[in-house]
Amino acid sequence: MALRGNLRDFTITQLLNLINLAHKTGTLIVDGPNETAQVAFREGKLAYAAIGQEDNSLATILHKGSKLTANQYLAIKQRSDHVSDKELGLLLINAGYVSQEDILASLQQYFIDITRRLFTWVEGFFRFENDMLPPEDRINIRLDLENLIIEGSRQLREWEQLQDEIPSLEMALKFTDRPGANLRNINLSVEEWRVVSYITPKNTISQIAKATKMNELEIRRIVYGLLQAGLVEIVRPEGAPLPMTSNMFPTQDKEEQKSLVNRLIKRIRSM
């Protein structure tokens, strides 16, 4: 039976656990909301990972990890078009630019980062291709999955807590009426500012997530932070149907409505 399904039913953490326990070899392909990720394993150990169109060449990874200077990186990029990662790695080691440990540590960090990003994906489809191995010209690592699984489990708990806090993304946000609060004096991250710029009772949280290209976990995290700081509150989206107010009372006459509430008060007092 092919290992395939929906992330809603089977989380990345559960998949990693299964791959680890079954010592699987192959590639896990995950179609997320905006991009596709491929994570390869050998005998249950993480070997390689790639995501979307992201440049995952060895030179770029080493440069991002501050193992290569900008000039070295540019020179390599311009002159190593036809050199594979394995060949480039050997050249760099022989030239004394980096050590083998540098290369493995940088790749390991990069692959771990990709896997961590997958933990935030709660929507999408996955399949595990048993016979699909990483590209031959790429350097593989061998990383035990246990720590990643523990980290993923923590994130899963966070996800469950965030779902409790923000049960629906079809609600809107509005800034709280706090006379003393000044948004300019509050330190927000770039992502938080992006969300803040879309906050109006007209936009649902899911619309904000779409506009800012955030997944459910990311938008929930930011909204939770803003809620915790008391900057925003959740409101019904403006323009959404309001079935409850129209038929709260059996009468539309304001005086009759008041009389009705007073009768309720009298009755409950007398109980």
């Binding site: 409790d164 806090e165 923000i166 049960p167 629906s168 609600m171 809107a172 509150e233 959740i234 409101v235 019904r236 309001l242 409850m244 107010t245 709260m248």
Partner: peptide
């Protein structure tokens, strides 16, 4: 979370 959801459902 429940309180916020209900507040959003109905401004009552």
């Amino acid at each position: 979370g429940i309180l916020q959801t209900f507040r959003a459902y109905a401004p009552t």
